[in-house]
Write a protein that binds this DNA or RNA. Structure first.
Lengths: 335, 335
DNA sequence: ATGGTTGGTGTAAGCGCTTGCATCATTCTT
DNA sequence: AAGAATGATGCAAGCGCTTACACCAACCAT
């Protein structure tokens, strides 16, 4: 009993397909009697308008699509939670599209999806392209909101990476640390670049020497290096040098978790700060820079819906402020 | 320059839309000259067939949809990784649909999505319904594969929860533990029910007393209770009783992480085993029951594609075996 | 009784694409 | 040189739905 269509319902109910369509769409100029009859038959046969036919006829999909490079990423998960809550209220369907990991074709994948118009609006999370490419996306005249990235002519919501890094470093410096290790991630990631840059920048401006031997990234570049394994590898590298760090700043919590394992294995106990404040951090006592991920998701949807409603509205660029959260991992006696 | 269609390309190229369609679909009876001309124009104008129109005309969507109750779930993330890898090879688009958390309507949400036929096949992860409801889904005659759940007439891939629990308990019992706490999750979750049931079952069959005071679940039932917070709360409850446990088995790793925090706060150091083997477990040294999540995702896709290819094939029910992984959390001297 | 409203329903065009079939040059056979 | 086979393209129907517009009975006011 597959593929039942509006025609089947119309025939069974003895009405035209237009009437069935009106009933299914809750149009109000349908008599109660007809409405009930159609409803009953539709329910019995398990009929519901096909998304594709409807989308074509309406030129509207009632669908929002999220695009992410790597779904198995805590940052994304939290942002997503915020997105979902908001979307649900607005009667849209949500689809998540996972951009394949083939570095070279990421942009093409995104562009093709957008060309295909399978949604009314798109939220791009942690997808970093050159300006030219973002500009190119504009020509499809489709509502897009960027999360964790910014571009002049596109709505976006992001978080101040400079400020987050500043807070972490400030704390460590104030504590008296002068050999602060940095566990970084892939150069492809813009937030990572910003954090790493600020790390150096603040050390310099404080007149503290920047030791290249204290800066490392693991070999594992899956998820742009934001992985436990990467953090572990990075810390191993650092500990292989003469210069022993007296503190550590990681560009993500998961990396910090990896780094902590390496430190434990080396019997090194120094203050360490991560970045993100994923749920687990609270439970393992990891100090970190909290990003309002849930709220960011929320705002992203808001921004997108607004744009869908009015394509000519002014570009909206929201920047959130991060916050230092102190836990056990920084409660360490300095030697 | 929005909404460019096959007609635009046809006109510009001076051919019929049929020809354009053929070029876009790599049909082979198109002359090289025409093909190149059309391709060039399509590229220049950024044209690509609209998914909805194509889906309607073809009665095929080239799209597979994953449905999950809660996306922010490690188990899901790992399974997803396996799914993606496999789907990518087969030229399908992947969409993830997050079933809203409104407990009452979950089934209806799933049914409606399936009715709307926005994909050629569906993978339902950790979605638990009554038999009648699963049976009802069958009438839409749509390829479906279940993950982490089974139903007689639907393809599925799951993992043996009884065996996993047995291994964990066996280890703890062999170690000499007789007061093994159990941190459980929501009753709604079938895997949880199976694990909790086996826990009691094995104790009884070993002639070890089952203390209800050692069995607990937290109050937080988000994600069916599979959360750090839930584990934390559960362990708090247990430690509030007289009966102090000498080991702990948790139905998920995240709960174990929560429980460990509670234990630390109470200065209790007993062996603890989680369930899942999420990435972080390796780094924090949590012993656990490993589930081959990636492989499960892989197999799920395989199974679904097979069904899409042949609706009459024999139902395929894959069951994977879990494996006990020992780490630091069980390296504890017993008192 | 007449014309004007009104609410409920049907008609038909169209959304952008695919695809079986027809068409028509070309080229091949004999 | 004529007919057959071949290759490339166009024609047009159809996928399942929405929606402007037309229609018509029933009702109202006059």
């Amino acid at each position: 009993m597959s593929q039942i269509t509006i025609y089947d319902i119309a025939k069974k109910a003895g009405v035209s397909i237009a009437t069935v369509s009106r009933v299914m769409n809750n149009s109000d100029d349908i008599s109660d009697k007809t409405r009930k009859k159609v409803r009953r038959i539709a329910d019995k046969l398990g009929y519901y308008p096909q998304a594709y036919a409807q989308g074509l006829a309406r030129r509207k999909k009632d669908r929002i699509m999220i695009m992410v490079p790597v779904i198995s990423n805590y940052f994304f998960m939290e942002v997503l939670a915020g997105i979902q809550a908001k979307i649900h209220d607005n009667n849209y369907e949500l689809n998540i599209f996972n951009v394949g990991s083939d570095e070279e074709t990421i942009y093409e994948q995104v562009e093709t999806i957008i060309k295909r118009q399978s949604a009314d609006g798109y939220i791009l999370i942690s997808l970093h392209f050159s300006s030219g490419r973002f500009e190119n996306l504009l020509k499809y005249d489709t509502p897009i909101t960027l999360v964790d990235e910014t571009y002049t002519n596109i709505d976006s919501v992001s978080v101040n990476n400079v400020e987050g890094t500043r807070q972490a470093m400030r704390y460590l410096l104030d504590k008296g640390c002068r050999g602060i290790a940095l566990v970084g991630a892939s150069d492809r990631s813009k937030p990572n670049r910003q954090r790493m840059a600020k790390y150096k920048n603040i050390l310099r401006s404080e007149g503290v020497e920047v030791y290249e031997s204290l800066i490392a990234t693991g070999e594992d570049m899956a998820r742009d290096g934001f992985s436990e394994r990467n953090g572990y590898e990075a810390m191993k590298k650092i500990l292989n040098q003469q210069n022993v760090p007296d503190a550590c700043f990681c560009v993500s919590d998961v990396q910090a978790i990896g780094a902590m394992k390496a430190m434990r294995e080396a019997n090194l106990n120094i203050p360490i700060i991560g970045y993100d404040d994923i749920t687990i951090s609270k439970y393992i006592g990891l100090s970190t820079i909290r990003q309002p991920m849930y709220e960011m998701g929320n705002t992203a949807v808001e921004s997108l819906l607004q744009r869908m409603d009015d394509k000519t509205a002014k570009i909206r660029q929201e920047t959130f402020q991060p916050e230092l959260v102190l836990r056990k991992s920084t409660e360490v006696e300095l030697p």
